[in-house]
Design a protein around this nucleic acid. Structure first.
Length: 877
RNA sequence: GCCGGGGUGGCGGAAUGGUAGACGCAGCGGAUUCAAAAUCCGCCGAUGAAUAAUCGUGAGAGUUCGAGUCUCUCCCUCGGCACCA
């Protein structure tokens, strides 16, 4: 039978279905805890089951899968699990829109998305699947919460939340739009409510000091966490006062404590600013209506750090004074809306000359500005009408106008001032942290119930371990006003476990970050009748974690904390859960819009827009297909609902297949960088796979054996093709190790180009046979279906997954001559072919003999000749 | 506002301090075809008649025989900011 008769066109739908069926029948991806091979735990961040996979998921899991398959073919026992971060706010929103319980919505989404993941051919061990909304998972959230409560790591305190006064409900930050509630439009208030906190602050030193040694993590993530933990060394000092409360007692023992990192500027203090909730502000407001109103105004607006930082800095004089701790002079006390009661001491010292924010504040309210620092570098003179960068410097400074402290640099001034404060018992060195304890209470239904019972006699009583899990009712439908659990008598009513009288369950649920802080432990033993069992030891820590950069701080820090908390409860020996971390970039797409007369912007999906380009292919205009009218071309932005620039990966899979989707995703950009959607580039990926299919499929007879290569019998063309195959393979193997999959794809394309460019005859057959086998194995982690199918067409009987990984053959890359670049004064003037073994003198001689080299040397003698072997000669004149 | 990342052809991107633009997309020209799709071949940073030369990696300076790469200053842009996940 001739090859022509067996040739068929590339049909991804059939190939992929058959290959997936094969994997299913062979249980190919089961990760056996008892295997003797070295383990490799490859973890991708688990998805929120929003309904359908988006391109970000596809990218994340394609990267993880390419790595998992590569490691597996390197001989590792690979665990690649998958699960669902299934609790959270979107399910409640969907419930409101569709009048459907969040549970039903969530489980339907999980079923759909699991099917999508399977159609993408990911080598996932589905026997280890976990959904965080299953009681079999979240019972261990509850169990561990109680453990931490026992250990004193859980505690209760009040916290500020966004409060919608019309819906009478707590709002998430994302539900606050321009300071108004998203459903009611009412002005959001800050309100204090009791919450459970985890004492992550007990671990701040450890979480910080481990970071420098975490070499498998990107530098930028470690820097972000370092800044987030925010260790700062400074001085905590007190401004004495004699302000009394209603009972005539001194407020806070007659002291206003403040923290500063700039004790060297203490002599420049011209005011003290306190938070609106500070007891002194409260006291001053009693007889001052304007101040009372100002304090009320401070309560408006959101609670996010960004909201607070961007708010216009405002203040009001309390009319009260405190004393400067060193000079005893009176210092006015102001209320500032930028001072936070629950951060530090709720008060700050104001040094307008050397802090930009204080400077603006003092200028606005006419407070004095007292310079106490001068620059030792040449700088413009101090000018109290305009802020200069150097006013806030710590380096190259000397104290001035500071009495006995004059003439000191930063460290000396801080030391001298601190010593005097210590003598007066009004201050001492202190380390503070930016990291705040983790408030985990959420006033929402769709989350893990906090296992606490409120008894009128006994107070807050933990649910006994034997009564776990506290099961979340599955049939509630939230309506936007408060937590539906508060209306569920069957959930609420319970007897106090301590005294037996009628009591009430806690209705707050846990932050969903709790769920994602330890799911990777549970994957190793999803059926265990305890939080984790001995199988965990076999797999943990995670060797490679992959996920979005947006999780660089919160999720990754909480997981590091949670692992330590588990360690301190005797559950694991580990401190760090993730050995290596890869933060993948975002998926972007073009945006198109029209702006209506009233300023409203409508966004159009790139699929519905036709773009015209100039003769060079540069886009010049775009029209909407529907009405043939022009639309404006926006920038390239993250795929999102709001910009209507998302691409549904399902359409991509349906049209081109999983292999093309995977190839495009990995080829278009390196994993850490953002990836731009490009429909033509998808076509290009598809074209490559068609070409690969045709090459193997059309040449089955030629390729079906594997004859050994005798180098000296090969033609020059065959040797060159083989050189290209092996040098590309060598590069690809290096790039696999550093997870640079885009250049692995490039190398694969080069290999296929070399092979298809080489005549397919008996003489060249060994090079084709070897090259095809290299190429298929090289591509298996990236496009697993087509390579599985073509591997069989080569007559190979073993599973390609079990095939030995290809290594570059040095003998294929030996060359007799090399091309050397000749530069004159660093500029390229000629290239020369020399014998690979040529010595420096002969290289120099032939370089100098080049006409163009002589021309540019203009008859001048060479001052210096630099020779880099096999690469370059630079003649300096 | 604070913190972090990124700027290289028309586009995505490639380059252990050593030939900038590999590989691909788009574009242009050609072959094949009744025609189209698909496929194959060639060209493809700018100026230029040019296989000459000059310029060219956001801008400016510096280190070096040599800088996309190292150092400093500046500009633009994107991401995170604790109740979105």
């Amino acid at each position: 039978m001739s090859d022509n008769l067996t040739a068929s066109t590339y049909n991804p739908a059939n190939i992929e279905a058959e290959t997936q069926q094969y994997w299913k029948e062979h249980n190919s991806f089961f990760a056996d805890s008892k295997s003797s091979k070295p383990k490799y735990y490859c973890l991708s961040m688990l998805p929120y089951p929003s309904g359908r996979l988006h391109m970000g998921h596809v990218r994340n899991y394609t990267i993880g899968d390419a790595l998992s398959r590569y490691k597996r073919m390197q001989g590792y026992n690979v665990l690649q699990p998958m699960g669902w971060d299934a609790f959270g706010l979107p399910a409640e929103n969907a419930a409101m829109n569709n009048n459907m319980p969040p549970a039903k919505w969530t489980y339907e989404n999980i079923d759909y998305m699991r099917d999508q993941l399977q159609k993408l051919g990911f080598a996932i061990d589905w026997s280890k699947e976990v959904a965080t909304c299953d009681a079999s998972y979240y019972r261990w959230n509850q169990w561990f919460f109680l453990k931490l409560l026992e250990k004193g790591i859980v505690y209760q305190k009040t916290a500020k939340v966004n409060w919608d006064p019309i819906d009478q409900t707590v709002l998430a930050n994302e539900q606050v739009i321009d300071g108004k509630g998203w459903r009611t439009g009412a002005t959001v208030e800050k309100r204090d409510i009791p919450m459970y906190y985890l004492k992550i602050s007990d671990y701040n030193d450890e979480l910080l000091s481990a970071l420098p040694d975490m070499e498998g993590w990107p530098e930028r993530v470690r820097t972000m966490q370092t800044n987030w933990i925010g260790k700062s060394s400074g001085v905590r000092l007190c401004f004495p006062h004699n302000i009394t409360d209603a009972d005539g007692a001194l407020i806070a023992d007659g002291k206003i404590p403040v923290f500063t990192t700039r004790a060297d500027t203490l002599m420049g203090v011209t005011f003290v600013a306190v938070a609106a909730e500070h007891p002194i502000a409260q006291k001053a407001a009693k007889n001052n209506a304007a101040l009372h109103d100002f304090i009320a105004e401070c309560k408006e607006g959101g609670v996010s750090e960004e909201d607070i930082a961007k708010r216009e800095k405002k203040g009001m004089d309390t009319g009260l004074t405190a004393q400067h701790p060193l000079t005893g002079e009176n210092v006015p006390i102001w209320v500032g809306n930028y001072v936070l009661m629950n951060y530090g001491d709720g008060a700050v010292m104001g040094v307008p000359a050397h802090d930009e924010r204080d400077f603006a504040f003092a200028n606005k309210y006419g407070l004095p500005i007292q310079q106490v620092i001068a620059s030792t570098k040449e700088q413009p003179p101090f000018d109290s009408s305009q802020w200069q960068e150097w006013y806030g410097d710590k380096e190259n400074t000397v104290t001035v106008h500071s009495g006995k402290y004059d003439g000191k640099d930063f460290a000396a001034a801080v030391a001298a001032i601190t010593a005097d404060l210590q003598v007066k018992s009004l201050g001492d060195k202190q380390t503070t942290w930016r990291l705040r304890d983790w408030g985990i209470s959420r006033q929402r239904y769709w989350g893990t119930p906090i296992p606490i019972i409120h008894c009128p006699s006994c107070g807050a009583v933990p649910v006994p371990e034997k009564d776990l899990p506290v099961v979340l009712p599955q049939d509630c439908v939230p309506d936007g006003s408060g937590n539906p659990l508060n209306k569920r008598e069957d959930f609420l009513a319970v007897d106090c476990p301590r005294c037996g009288q009628a009591a009430k369950r806690e209705t707050d649920t846990m932050d969903t970050f709790v769920d994602s802080s330890w799911y990777y432990f549970r994957y190793t033993c999803p059926e265990a009748g305890q939080m984790i069992d001995e199988q965990t030891k076999q797999w943990m820590p995670v060797d490679q974690y992959i996920g979005g950069i947006e999780h660089a701080i919160l999720h990754l820090l909480y997981s590091r904390f949670w692992t330590r908390a588990m360690r301190d409860c005797g559950l694991t020996d580990l401190s760090e859960p993730f050995d290596r971390l890869l933060t993948q970039g975002m998926v972007l797409n073009d945006t198109y819009f029209r702006k209506a007369d009233d300023g409203r912007v409508s966004w159009y999906n790139p699929d519905d827009v036709e773009v015209s380009t100039d003769s060079k292919g540069k886009p010049i205009s775009a029209i909407l297909r529907e009405d043939q009218q022009p639309v404006d071309i926006g920038g390239v932005e993250k795929m999102s609902k709001s910009k209507n620039n998302g691409i549904d990966p399902q359409a991509l899979i349906d049209q081109y297949g999983a292999d093309t989707s995977r190839l495009f995703t990995l080829f278009a950009a390196p994993p850490e960088q953002s990836l731009e959607w490009n429909a033509s580039a998808v076509e290009g990926a598809y074209r490559f796979l068609k070409k690969l299919w045709t090459y193997v499929n059309d040449n089955q007879t030629l390729l079906s054996q594997l004859t050994s290569i005798e180098d000296n019998t090969l033609s020059k063309a065959a040797q060159e093709a083989r050189f290209e195959v092996h040098s590309s393979l060598q590069q690809a193997n290096k790039d696999y190790e550093r997870m640079q999959f885009n250049t692995v794809v490039s190398a694969s394309m080069k290999i296929l180009n070399a092979l298809t460019g080489l005549e397919r005859d008996e003489k060249n057959a060994p090079v084709h046979q070897e090259g095809a086998r290299i190429l298929l194995r090289l591509l298996q982690p990236i496009t697993p279906h087509i390579t599985h199918s073509l591997w069989q067409q080569l007559g190979e009987t073993t599973d390609i997954l079990d095939a030995e990984w290809p290594q570059a053959d040095d003998s294929a890359m030996v060359t007799t001559t090399v091309t050397i670049v000749v530069q004159v004064n660093g500029k390229l003037r000629a290239t020369i072919e020399v014998d690979a073994s040529a010595d420096k003198t002969s290289i120099e001689t032939s370089a100098l003999a080049q006409d163009n080299v002589q021309k540019f040397m203009e008859g001048k003698p060479a001052k210096k000749i630099i020779i880099i072997p096999n690469k370059l000669v630079n003649i300096v004149i």
